[in-house]
């Protein structure tokens, strides 16, 4: 068991070891879905939600796998769980909030291949978090992802107005901006214990 306090787990996941900017997880949606602030915010919310659900499931699966003694099935069961969690979330959202469902559109199923989700499941296992710690970690990771993608979308909206050399346009300039953001987040490194 890991005795880390909940507050520090949360802060750590949001700022110090931000999933996108310092652990490089979830880069694809970070580069792909960060053109507008509102789509970015919705993507962040959806990812956070899926993270919470799959974190709970991964915790359960881990106990089950330890019980049948088959650790080599870990990766395969995680990915199956995440795919089903995404499907579940999709059905749930469609039933209870058709508006949100339409707004999220294609992004919802794409969350399955977001490596931040699988990364979260793997990290919480390797860090030996208990159930509550895992949930807080998932919440922090989701919040960190949302924060990074919204910040990025804000900068990219401004970037539309700036004059960028045409050879740097597209992904290249976005990566440079991401590098500067990542440098800024390094300033949080002293926050933790």
């Amino acid at each position: 068991m890991n005795g880390e306090p909940l507050g520090s787990i949360f802060l750590n996941a949001v700022l110090i070891n931000n999933f996108v900017l310092s652990a490089f997880l979830g880069i694809c949606p970070f580069l792909g879905v960060s053109k507008k602030i509102d789509t970015a915010a919705r993507m962040g919310a959806a990812v956070t939600f899926v993270m919470l659900v799959s974190s709970m499931c991964a915790y359960g699966v881990n106990i089950a796998l330890a019980w049948i003694g088959a650790p080599y099935l870990q990766l395969i069961s995680y990915i199956v769980i995440i795919a089903s969690a995404v499907q579940l979330v999709e059905m749930f959202v469609r039933k209870f909030s058709p508006g949100l469902f339409r707004a999220l559109g294609i992004f919802l199923p794409l969350i399955t291949t977001n490596c931040a989700i699988l990364g979260l499941a793997l990290f919480q296992t390797s860090k030996n978090y208990n159930f509550v710690q895992s949930l807080v970690y998932a919440l922090g990771a989701g919040a960190g992802f949302a924060l990074a993608i919204v910040l990025m979308a804000g900068i990219r909206e401004e970037l539309e107005l700036a004059t960028v050399p045409h050879l740097l346009k597209g992904t290249a300039i976005v990566l440079v901006v991401a590098g500067i953001l990542s440098l800024a987040f390094m300033g949080f490194a002293g926050l933790g214990a």
Partner: peptide, 24 residues
Amino acid sequence: IMVLPGGAFFVLGLLLFLVNVIGE
């Protein structure tokens, strides 16, 4: 900076830029 996360973004951005230059 090069071994830190920020450096990874910068170098990849630069490489994409170079690929664009060669493509041009």
